[in-house]
Amino acid sequence: MLDIQNVSVKFSSASEVGAVEDVSLTLQKGTKTALIGETGSGKSVLLLAVMKLLPATAEISGSVLLEGTDLLSLSEEELETIRGDRISYIPQGGGNGLNPLMRIGMQIGEPLIDHRGYSKKKAIAQSVELLRRFRLGKEETWVRAYPHMLSGGMRQRAMIAMGIAAGSRVILADEPTKGLDQDRIQGVAECFQYLQGETLLCVTHDVNFAASVGEYISVMYAAQQLEYAKKEAFFEHPLHPYSRAILDAMPERGLKSNIGFAPPHDAYSVKGCRFSDRCPYKNKLCDEKKPPFIDVKGHKVRCWQYAD
């Protein structure tokens, strides 16, 4: 459905380390993938790069195939017809992702107006139906509301509804749980479970949320993908030392590790493994050569430990 191949993003002004380096991800039709990583690991940039939404200063390489069409090679006009129609982006609910001066119904229905030629009235009526799918309650009233009247959790649900409004089959969600409390996070997770048949790539730094939403988990660290696996495999047998550290740092698992936060981008060794400075298992090779993305029976990991 969506095939991200060797995508790299570099901001010309940035240091030698890019924002995203050589990330490949294949999303099968109808699957849900959670992309986890710390702030600054490049996961949100990757999402924007996939839809070619980054500013012109960003240099993107690689290819993004949506049902065979390479999105990165399309012109802005061609992208306008695809964005919101075949692939959607859902911004953070806690942020400023909704126009403060436009009613919710109009914002949800907007893709229908532009892609399906709906009238304003019909689009707003349809947005009531869309909101109903996410069990907002009092949908007829909410479509007349302005974004500031909604709580963060409700805004997030409205934005998911907006994402699928025109029948888009691929959904990219950017940190949908940011700024929400535990209860609302649960609600948002449920909303993503209502999505049946849509292909989802969800960026998050909430491991529990990733576990409840994703069928596949991908881990990003310092612009690189470190691990990719089925959810069960990832949580039961994480391969990368970083993934293990993340899981061990969770309260549910007894807060067994605390390796702190990732250093800034210019502090990495360019040659070797990005994680080597914090890795308890590192050896000489780690500092000298970049580890390849190794396939261990369908479970992919970027670590020298698993090289033959």
Partner: peptide, 22 residues
């Protein structure tokens, strides 16, 4: 530069309509 403009572009709203509507 606001996030909601990015949202509108991501929805596939044509450029001139982004200007006039948002």
């Amino acid at each position: 530069g606001e996030e909601y403009i990015l949202t509108a572009v991501a929805k596939g709203v044509p450029k001139t309509k982004v200007l006039f509507r948002h």
